[in-house]
Design a protein around this nucleic acid. Structure first.
Lengths: 131, 131
DNA sequence: ATAAAGGTTCCAGTGACTGGAAGCTCAAGC
DNA sequence: GCTTGAGCTTCCAGTCACTGGAACCTTTAT
């Protein structure tokens, strides 16, 4: 398979796949013309990577997870630990965004949004929030 | 005020303040010794920036908001539009993170996390998810 | 013969800082 | 006066995970 084929099947842009090779996540063979030649196992790995990235795992987490995936002596506890750590990170981000959301939606509701300059949003940002 | 003083009062690292000057968000005067010399208005702007950034506004949004803040002919509708756009972005991120969270926590719960290699998390990532 | 599509490498840019090196200035203590 | 340390300066490089683009090569179809 050429890069375009794997790209389509794995649902990843060719650029991303080249980047993954550059950082050592996949190591496709090369044809005599210099083109990358992907095997089923490469496609499999790339699909794995696409899914893991879609769940928000960092590239380094993906590297770890791929390593565990290919290691039959792994313990599921190792995988679970990585996933739980990431889950905690997601929860932290959600909490942070919800706090922003709360403040901001409050301010947006308080703002008339008309042609006059008075604006509770700017007042809050400027620290004059007498709310 | 020297940079360390404003940094402390605005709650921003000196590095960040220098960066904000570099991209034109603040323009402190200079003392004869070459040190940046901040006025109250600069401190005020930096505090504004710190709050806006804490609400997740991008630097470009901050630039726009600062501009509106200093423009007495502004219409509050302009401010509200920026804020609403950002609020929508926050909501999109929250939704995305919650979807990740749902999938991931489901997988984490399904994983025994023991010394054996069987792992629903890896199975799902590898596309063998027969769930 | 040519043109389009797809492949290759390499370099630069993204956002918003952050770390570190090399060097200058200032205030305090001896 | 001299030294020490803190704080200031600039500049360069790195972060993360790509993404865009240039310049060039290969394959396939017309």
């Amino acid at each position: 398979m050429n890069i375009g084929d794997v790209a389509e099947r794995a649902g990843l842009p060719p650029k991303t796949i080249r980047y993954y090779e550059e950082i050592g996540l996949v190591r496709p063979l090369r044809s005599t013309n210099g083109y990358r030649s992907f095997q089923e196992s490469d496609l499999h790995k790339l699909t794995f990577l696409g899914r893991a990235r879609a769940l928000g795992f960092s590239i380094e987490d993906c590297r770890t997870l791929l390593g565990l995936y290919e290691d039959d002596t792994r313990e599921s506890a190792q995988v679970k630990a990585v996933a739980e750590e990431h889950l905690g990170e997601i929860d932290r981000k959600i909490t942070e965004l919800q706090a922003m959301r709360a403040t901001l939606s409050h301010l947006v509701n308080a703002c008339h949004g008309d042609e006059r300059p008075d604006c509770p949003i700017l007042e809050d940002l400027s620290g004059l929030g007498a709310d």
